[in-house]
Nucleic acid binder design. Structure first.
Length: 310
DNA sequence: TAGATACCTTATAG
DNA sequence: ACTATAAGGTATC
C-alpha cells in the first residue's frame, strides 16, 4: 500500500472533491460507499472515491496500455488523502488537475452574474483530466442519457469486460482496454443497457484497438481540427467531441453544447445562438472568456443542473 | 448543405 | 396503474 496526503489548502484555489467528481465530468470514478450521484449536495464530504488507471512512465494516466493501478482519494478539509497500489501522487495531481490556477482562470473570465454565482457556489471544483479512451467511450454512452445512468453503464462495462485488481482486501475492476471492448458483441453491450449506443461503443473501441485512430492523437491538433478528428469515431458528434477535448485532452476552451447549455444560451445569452453548432460554439466561447471558457461552462452546468436559477 | 426522423432504455411526471 | 416525456445526441436519409 502506497499512500500520502496533498495539502490542497495551499493550491492556487482550493479543492472541492465531491463537486469535481460528481458534476458529470468524469464517469470513471466510483464512491466506495456506493452513493455516487445519490444526494447531489451533501453526503460526499469525506467519502473515498476510487478509480483504476494504467499510469505510463511519465505518470500519465492511461487506460489502453500498461499495468492497472487502483487509486483512491478522499478529502478531509484542507487535506487530500490518497492510497494506491503504486506511488500515485503525480497521477492524482494529473487526474484532478490540481495544478490549475483557479483564481487566475476565474480572473480571465468576463464579469457575469450567472458565472459568478456558479463559481461562488462550487469554488474549488476543478476540471478533470480523464484518460482519453475512457473519456471517449463514456461520452459516447452519454447520448440522451441521465448522468447517474451514464456512470452506472461505465461500472457495468468495467465489471463485465475489465481486468480485476486486488487492493486492500477487495477486488476492483479496471475499465476495459480497447482490445477487450472491441471483442465484446453488440448483443452483450445491449444486455448491459447501452441501447443504440452498443454498436457505437464496439466499433469505436475497434478503431482504437486496430490502431486506425486514437483519441489522444487529437492533442496535437488545433482546437477545431481536434474536434473534427474525434468525430471520425462512431457515435461521436460535435458535442461528444467537445466533452473529450475538455475533460481529457486539455482543451479548456471547449464548450460542449448540450441540452443544459443550449437552454442557458436561450435564456441568458440569446445573441450567441447562431443556429448551428460551430458558429454558436464560437460565440458562446467568446462570451465565456475564450481560453478558459470550458471552466465557466462546467461551473454553470453544475450550478443549473442543481437548481441554480430557482 | 440544411432539416427531419429514428433510435435503446429507464426514471419521472402527469 | 398507465402513458407521455425527457435524458450532457448521433447517424442517416
Amino acid at each position: 500500500m502506497h499512500s500520502g496526503t496533498i495539502d490542497v489548502s495551499s493550491l492556487a484555489g482550493s479543492l472541492d472533491l465531491q463537486a469535481t467528481l460528481e458534476s458529470g465530468q468524469s464517469y470513471l470514478w466510483r464512491r466506495e460507499d456506493g452513493r455516487m450521484y445519490e444526494d447531489g449536495e451533501q453526503t460526499g464530504g469525506e467519502a473515498w472515491y476510487v478509480t483504476v488507471v494504467r499510469p505510463d512512465e511519465s505518470g500519465e494516466a492511461r487506460l489502453d496500455a500498461g499495468e492497472p493501478a487502483v487509486v483512491r482519494v478522499r478529502q478531509r478539509g484542507g487535506l487530500l488523502e490518497w492510497e494506491s497500489t503504486v506511488d500515485a501522487e503525480a497521477v492524482v495531481r494529473s487526474l484532478l488537475r490540481l495544478d490549475d490556477d483557479l483564481p487566475a482562470i476565474r480572473a480571465a473570465t468576463p464579469p457575469d452574474s450567472l458565472i459568478d454565482a456558479a463559481y461562488e457556489r462550487y469554488w474549488g471544483m476543478r476540471l478533470v483530466r480523464d484518460p482519453p479512451f475512457g473519456a471517449l467511450i463514456s461520452f459516447i454512452c452519454s447520448a440522451q442519457m441521465r448522468v447517474s445512468r451514464i456512470h452506472d453503464m461505465q461500472v457495468a462495462l468495467a465489471e463485465a469486460f475489465g481486468d480485476t485488481v486486488d487492493f486492500d482486501g477487495r477486488s476492483y475492476h479496471a475499465f476495459p482496454t480497447p482490445v477487450q471492448l472491441a471483442a465484446a458483441s453488440e448483443a452483450e453491450l445491449r444486455d448491459l443497457g447501452l441501447g443504440y449506443r452498443a454498436p457505437y461503443v464496439q466499433r469505436s473501441a475497434e478503431m482504437v484497438a486496430s490502431g486506425e485512430a486514437h483519441p489522444a492523437e487529437a492533442r496535437d491538433l488545433s482546437y477545431e481540427d481536434a474536434r473534427e478528428y474525434l468525430t471520425q469515431f462512431v457515435g461521436v458528434g460535435e458535442k461528444v467531441a467537445d466533452c473529450v477535448l475538455l475533460f481529457s485532452l486539455d482543451f479548456l476552451e471547449a464548450v460542449p453544447l448540450d441540452t443544459w447549455i443550449r437552454k442557458t444560451i436561450a435564456e441568458y445569452y440569446p445573441d450567441c445562438d447562431r443556429g448551428n453548432y460551430a458558429d454558436t460554439s464560437r460565440a458562446i466561447r467568446e462570451r465565456l472568456g475564450g481560453e478558459y471558457a470550458g471552466y465557466a461552462q462546467t461551473y454553470v452546468f453544475h450550478h443549473l443542473r442543481n437548481g441554480g436559477d430557482d
